[in-house]
């Protein structure tokens, strides 16, 4: 596959065009990567693909080898692994709060103590997720406490 980069003037809108014979998994991965750089991610629901803005995602959860993105009142499956999402979006304030959950810190309303050194994060959509004790030092580091 040929890769061509063209310099344009500032008056023009930047865009990426992929010209291919068929939209296969490889092309989708490239497109997903570009969208992710732009704050978008592909979400799947009943064989349909939706483009979701990262800012709308409350948390990602890994369940039985699948990863789901939870929005205010909607859930989509995403094809990325949880550790990939953690690596890609840590600078977008996504924080690994337990083994199976990556929470968007911008969607956390407040944090309160739970049992045995754990904390509960109450989200803006009234859902609650657990912050494990082992991840609390990392959270403090992110928040510069």
């Amino acid at each position: 596959m040929k890769v061509r980069i063209e310099n344009i003037s500032k008056s023009e809108e930047e865009n990426i065009l992929i010209r291919c014979y068929k939209v296969n998994e490889e092309i989708r991965e490239i497109a997903d990567f570009i969208r992710a750089r732009d704050g978008m991610i592909s979400g799947y629901e009943e064989a349909q693909i939706f483009q979701i803005a990262l800012r709308d995602i409350y948390y990602f959860e890994g369940v039985d080898n699948k990863v789901y993105a939870y929005l205010k009142d909607h859930v989509y499956e995403v094809k990325n692994k949880l550790y990939e999402l953690e690596e890609d979006y840590h600078n977008r304030k996504f924080f690994r709060c337990s083994k199976s959950i990556l929470v968007n810190l911008l969607k956390v309303e407040c944090v309160k103590p739970a049992m045995n050194g754990r904390f509960t994060a109450k989200l803006l959509n009234r859902e609650e997720v657990i912050i494990s004790r082992q991840y609390v030092p990392e959270l403090k580091k992110i928040l510069q406490i």
Partner: peptide, 21 residues
């Protein structure tokens, strides 16, 4: 005592969250 320590940590975390939000 643990609850009080954790409550104080939670207050600090909430302040930090407000800052980044």
């Amino acid at each position: 005592v643990h609850y009080l320590i954790d409550s104080r940590t939670a207050v600090e975390i909430n302040k930090g969250l407000r800052r980044i939000q």
